[in-house]
Nucleic acid binder design. Structure first.
Lengths: 332, 332
DNA sequence: CTGAAAGCGCTAACAA
DNA sequence: TTGTTAGCGCTTTCAG
């Protein structure tokens, strides 16, 4: 804690023998200075170890060079990957990330939004969350980009091609010989899940197969819940199906494990496809066939879009769909 | 974008018919105002939807109410859990988190540190990273708390009781009948891993068992790498051991899978213990016995400590050790 | 108990 | 090409 005082633009100006305006100009590359002056100022900045005070800049310009990210659960690998990519991309643009974990909790989310507004973030990237966003006073006029889930009143949206994902999953199962495919979905039935079902049904119809209600099951999208559902189904009705499409990988894994424990061979008797391609799917045996969402692309598009909105560029593409791909492994 | 201008303390003061100083006082609960004045000001603040401008506050007070967190890989559940807890705890103290993913990359890490310094964070929580931190100019005087790994020149440190963790793992294996236990460790041999080994060896010695070099293997701590190492070992020397202690869960899982694929029964012939208690360990079959680190405690201590340092309180406990516990599941 | 006013570090309009 | 200067919104002395 010695010589605590930070060096300011004034110190630099004095030391370089110019005015603070000039220093400011070269920092911001605004032009209007000679080559020599620039050289001298830059050297001085270097020597003093000067770094601009973002609070002062923010106060003046109403900008903070930071972006808020709200995510339901950072512990979920899918979301964590998006954050990692956002972080990498935005660092290169000299932005930083204020990360907020909403825990899917409405109150927490609102507190975080307030906090972000107070912190004067330049924009918010909303990774999933509620199905309807209440536009709070605090964030009126603040650029917001939604990823993944699509709240009703969202304006700018980046999502995976869930419909095609469902289709690919269905087609894979059918091609590998399945005729009665169970559809195990997130009980909350968000727009993403609905799209996956649509694609899945399309694949069925393409082969003249009908989708029947009794083949659809739902549960809270977690390992333990999915286990319970499948165990009960097996006990009550036996193994009357030969394929399962689960709307996420944790549920798919639960199915594989329950099946195996019940001496039902995977993929011999029943084939399974998941969704998300979390790394876990490679570490199980058998490894799980799944639909991969392109988290990197999702993140980069979101970051790019929010930056454009911050610069007041017009966003012509309000809704971007990122392609998915099928990753065939050992459960099909 | 209508009526864009944010309401400031001046607006509130005018509307409440007091001076800005008074408004400031009640906001900060600094005392020196009557009950009535306070009441009136509070109501006005409410009515206007006033939120203080943190940039202005930061400029005045040299505080930002934000804390930087540097983490090697947010995609790793162990780190993600810590961030989640930090976020929850710090939100309640009106701090926000600037999250930086270092990717274990030296250059990236330094860029992030610079960014954090410019952003005027009030402190930095350093979750692991290099083994030696170069104190950069930018962060002199900035409170830093290290979690998990212990760089040489770290002053304040929060870590898990890795020694006991290793001991518990060893004892569990021995109690369940193991006599030749393989020690599979992270090849980088950080201080955490060294402690785990020490505890493990202590458990051995307690039972009069010796630790022999040929029982120690190392690799980059990932699923695929661990697989390769164990597969080769099995091919070259056969299954000459009856237990494995792996220094993280991914390696433990790799062992279980390789063993199973080679018709070696787990836990029948070989028992396995991992480290970290990531959620994956419950989703495999057999479920993996492991040593749980208390991420919540780790996070809360770190947050609490950094807050104290920010308040210039003296930190008497420079080095805090958080207890671990053994979670017995199906591989032992 | 309350108010006036200085000033934190910076940008941008205006002058020169 | 460069300098001067008025604030941005807030906290905090100092006076009253």
């Amino acid at each position: 804690m010695e010589g605590n005082k930070r060096v300011s633009i004034i110190d630099v100006a004095k030391k370089a023998g110019v005015s603070i305006a000039t220093v400011s100009r070269v920092i911001n590359r605004n032009g209007g200075y000679s080559k020599e002056t620039e050289e001298r100022v830059r050297r001085t900045i270097e020597e003093c170890g000067f770094t601009p005070n973002v609070n002062a800049i923010g106060l003046r310009t109403n900008r903070s060079n930071s972006i808020g990210v709200i995510v339901p659960d950072i512990t979920n690998e899918f979301f964590a990957r998006i954050i990692r990519e956002l972080d990498a991309f935005l660092l290169s643009r000299r932005y930083s990330l204020l990360v907020c974990n909403s825990n899917e909790d409405y109150m927490l989310e609102n507190m975080h939004i307030k906090g972000l507004a107070e912190k004067h973030v330049d924009g918010i990237i909303y990774i999933s969350g509620q199905n309807e966003i209440k536009k709070m006073n605090e964030i009126k006029g603040l650029p917001i980009v939604y990823i993944d889930r699509a709240p009703k009143n969202a304006e700018v949206l980046i999502l995976s091609d869930n419909e095609t994902g469902g289709y690919l999953a269905g087609r894979e199962l059918i091609q590998k010989g399945c005729r009665r495919i169970l559809f195990l979905r997130d009980i909350r039935y968000a727009s993403t899940v609905r799209s996956r079902k649509e694609g899945f049904v399309r694949a069925l119809q393409e082969k003249g197969m009908a989708f029947s209600e009794e083949l659809e099951m739902s549960c809270f999208p977690e390992y333990a819940e999915a286990r319970v559902v499948l165990e009960r189904l097996l006990k009550e009705k036996g193994c009357f199906f030969d394929g399962i499409f689960a709307t996420n990988d944790m549920m798919a894994l639960a199915c594989v494990n329950v099946l195996t424990e019940n001496q039902i061979k995977v993929p011999g008797q029943v084939k399974v496809v998941g969704f998300d391609n979390i790394s876990l799917t490679q570490f199980t045996s058998p490894q799980i066939t799944t639909v991969a969402q392109d988290t990197k692309e999702l993140a980069i598009h979101a970051a790019d879009t929010i930056l454009k909105m911050i610069e007041d560029e017009e966003i012509k593409q309000k809704r971007t769909i990122i392609p998915v791909r099928l990753v065939v492994r050992e459960t099909t």
